[in-house]
Nucleic acid binder design. Structure first.
Length: 377
RNA sequence: GGGCAGGUAGCCUAGCGGUGAAGGCAAGAGACUGUAAAUCUCCCACAUUAGAAACACCGUUGGUUCGAGUCCAACCCUGCCCA
């Protein structure tokens, strides 16, 4: 059974290790997002190891639609299928309730989707989500929730959060049943619950207290970075995270920018994931300690420096900004790939720095310096 | 020399009597937070807070017309064919 080992605290910030059947996760950690079983941008699992990825994130909804979770189960599970022996966290499909809002209907029993691929009807409720994630055999399964729009009114959010709580109880029950079955791929699959409540702090706190009693393996804060301001997001974290069990990992879903992560670590968050490094990489935007660069910009046409001086990623060890810009302009896949690799390396390395800073008890000054550097233009 | 087909932005193309000239590509910029995103948005013919103000070469110059990228003529280019 997984154990979250808290090594050190600095204020609310936590430095820990999460022990799982697929290996230890040093926290705080950034999980690299490979929705459909791969990080977009032609990144292999071998590449992932080279960019120091600890945990890969995949998606229940997407893998259910294609190639099908029963196929993956038949082929031995997601780890074997994509050849990745480290932890995998699968998102439950709850975010697709938000992102595919035009293609779904929410009912008490679950959500009726129209497949974004072929329009086929798909029903996914808590039990279905757990079954699919069990078939995938991921290390950590996320509870099936509704991620409501940040602009939703209070009444809607209350109803939604209550439904998410009922769904969470059903998830827990189903997970327990699946983990006991003989033919289950990962009998030690973990379940993280998800806090919701949009920007209403009192709803968030009450919900956090309710789910904290449920003895889950970890707790996520969802429904942030979906349209509210950074200040609102930090405020919600300030209010909510203290009510989640500190002897379990806290996961801020879908967040975020390097600055968001530094702020959230300070507020006690252990796990992160975000599409930014990969998506921005594909779009030619790369992160550096002096801020983000858009390598499509003309000013890099003759810039023979690496993306970031001293960076040890494949792109920076080998190629110049000018060459990568050329590749991007020429739509050569290598351009995107190098940017994605750099960004993932940047994120994972920043998390290593954060962990080191926490180990040495100098996170506060590290954070200040890092933020200051990245604000330069 | 003769015949045919063309000349519209950096490039390619629409337009066939009333358009401040449509598309696409290229160029320039921006957005993206549990990935329907190698996507999307803006910008790109003189000018531009746009006013019944001005300026404006749809190869060039004239002409027809209230009005011409659009019709006519000549000329200049380009491509193909015939000598």
């Amino acid at each position: 059974m997984a154990v979250y080992e808290l090594l050190k605290r600095e204020g609310r910030a936590k430095r820990g290790i999460f022990h799982t059947v697929h290996g230890d996760i040093q926290t705080p950690v950034f999980m690299n997002v490979g929705t459909a079983g791969a990080i977009k941008g032609a990144v292999s699992t071998q590449d992932l190891k080279e960019v120091h990825c600890q945990v890969q994130l995949s998606n229940t909804y997407h893998l259910h639609v294609r190639p099908g979770d029963t196929l993956i189960r038949e082929l031995g599970g997601l780890h074997k299928f994509m050849v990745w022996d480290r932890p995998i966290l699968t998102d439950s499909g709850g975010f697709q309730v938000f992102s595919l809002a035009g293609l779904r209907k929410i009912k008490e029993e679950g959500v009726y989707f129209h497949s974004h691929i072929d329009g086929a009807k798909i029903f996914m409720g808590p039990e279905e989500s757990m079954q699919i994630q069990s078939n995938l055999g991921s290390t950590i399964a996320m509870a099936f929730d509704e991620c409501p729009n940040a602009l939703s009114d209070r009444g809607y959010v209350e109803d939604s959060v209550n439904r998410t709580t009922r769904w969470l109880m059903r998830c827990k029950e189903k997970m327990a049943e699946l983990n006991q079955r003989e033919d289950t791929i990962n009998k030690e699959q973990l379940l993280f619950g998800i806090n919701q409540g949009a920007v209403f702090a009192d709803i968030r706190v009450e919900h956090a207290k309710r789910i904290a009693e449920m003895e889950l393996d970890g707790y996520a804060v969802g429904g942030l970075a979906v349209g509210e301001t950074h200040e609102e997001m930090y405020h919600i974290l300030d209010e909510t995270v203290p009510h989640l069990p500190s002897d379990k990992p806290t996961y801020l879903m879908g967040v975020g920018t390097p600055a968001n992560i530094l702020e959230a670590v300070e507020r006690g968050v252990d796990f992160f994931d975000c599409v930014y490094p990969s998506r921005n990489g594909r779009h030619g935007h790369v992160y550096t300690n002096q801020g983000k660069l858009n390598l499509f910009n003309q000013k890099f046409e003759r810039d023979m420096r690496p993306i970031e001086e001293g960076c040890q990623c494949e792109a920076c060890r080998t190629y110049s900004r000018a060459y990568i810009r050329h590749l991007l302009k020429a739509k050569e896949m290598l351009g995107m790939r190098l940017c994605v690799l750099h960004n993932l390396y940047f994120y994972n390395t920043m998390m290593e720095e954060i962990r080191d800073a926490l180990d040495y008890g100098i996170f506060a000054s590290y954070k200040k310096e890092k933020l200051c550097g990245m604000e330069q233009k």
